[in-house]
Amino acid sequence: GMDVRRLKVNELREELQRRGLDTRGLKAELAERLQAALSGPSSG
C-alpha cells in the first residue's frame, strides 16, 4: 500500500482532494485522514 507518512503535504492534499476529502489541517492530520481512507472500506 501507500505510505502516507512519506508523502509531502501537497501530495497528501492531492490524494485527499482526489477522494473528495478535506484538505485542511496539519500534515499529521492529512496523513491520518488519508490513511483512514485507504484502509477503510472501498466503495464503488
Results as ranks from 00 to 15, higher is better:
Arg19Pro: 02
Ala28Tyr: 10
Thr23Asp: 09
Arg33Tyr: 03
Thr23Phe: 07
Ala37Gly: 03
Glu11His: 05
Glu11Arg: 09
Leu16Gln: 00
Arg5Met: 10
Ser43Gln: 13
Val4Arg: 04
Ala28Cys: 10
Ala37Met: 05
Leu34Phe: 02
Gly25Ala: 02
Val9Trp: 10
Ala31Val: 15
Arg24Lys: 11
Ser39Thr: 12
Glu32Met: 13
Gly20Met: 03
Gly20Asn: 06
Ala31His: 05
Ser42Met: 11
Pro41Thr: 14
Glu32Asp: 10
Leu26Asn: 15
Leu12Asn: 00
Gly40Ser: 12
Arg18Thr: 04
Leu16His: 01
Arg24Ala: 11
Gly40Gln: 13
Ala31Ile: 15
Leu38Phe: 06
Arg5Thr: 10
Leu34Glu: 01
Ala28Ser: 11
Glu11Leu: 05
Leu26Trp: 06
Leu38His: 02
Ser42Gln: 13
Asp22Gln: 07
Val9His: 05
Ala28His: 14
Gly20His: 06
Asp3His: 09
Gln17Tyr: 14
Arg6Lys: 14
Leu34Tyr: 03
Val4Phe: 08
Leu30Glu: 02
Ala28Thr: 09
Asn10Cys: 15
Gln17Ala: 15
Leu12Trp: 01
Leu34Ala: 00
Leu38Arg: 04
Val4Asp: 01
Gly40His: 12
Glu29Asn: 05
Arg18Gly: 03
Gln35Ile: 15
Val4Ser: 04
Arg18Val: 05
Val9Lys: 08
Gly40Tyr: 10
Glu14Ser: 12
Asp22Glu: 08
Arg33Val: 02
Lys27Met: 09
Glu29Tyr: 04
Asn10Ser: 14
Arg19Ser: 02
Leu21Thr: 02
Thr23Tyr: 07
Leu30Gln: 01
Arg19His: 05
Ala28Gln: 10
Leu21Val: 03
Leu26Gln: 14
Ser42Asp: 11
Arg18Ala: 06
Glu29Trp: 07
Lys27Val: 08
Gly20Gln: 04
Pro41Ile: 13
Leu26Phe: 09
Arg19Val: 02
Ser42Gly: 13
Arg33Glu: 01
Arg13Leu: 06
Lys27Trp: 15
Asp22Asn: 12
Ala36Glu: 08
Glu11Thr: 05
Leu38Gly: 02
Arg19Lys: 04
Arg18Ile: 07
Gly44Val: 12
Gly20Phe: 04
Lys27Phe: 11
Leu7Lys: 03
Ser43Ala: 13
Arg13Glu: 03
Asn10Val: 09
Ala28Leu: 07
Pro41Ser: 13
Glu14His: 13
Arg5Glu: 07
Leu7Gln: 02
Lys27Ile: 09
Glu29Ile: 08
Met2Ala: 06
Arg6Pro: 04
Gly1Val: 15
Ala31Lys: 07
Glu15Ile: 07
Ser42Phe: 08
Gly44Ser: 11
Ala28Val: 08
Leu16Ser: 01
Glu32Lys: 14
Arg5Gln: 08
Val9Gly: 03
Leu38Gln: 04
Leu38Ala: 03
Gly20Asp: 04
Ala37Arg: 03
Ala31Met: 15
Glu29Lys: 06
Lys8Ser: 15
Ala37Ile: 06
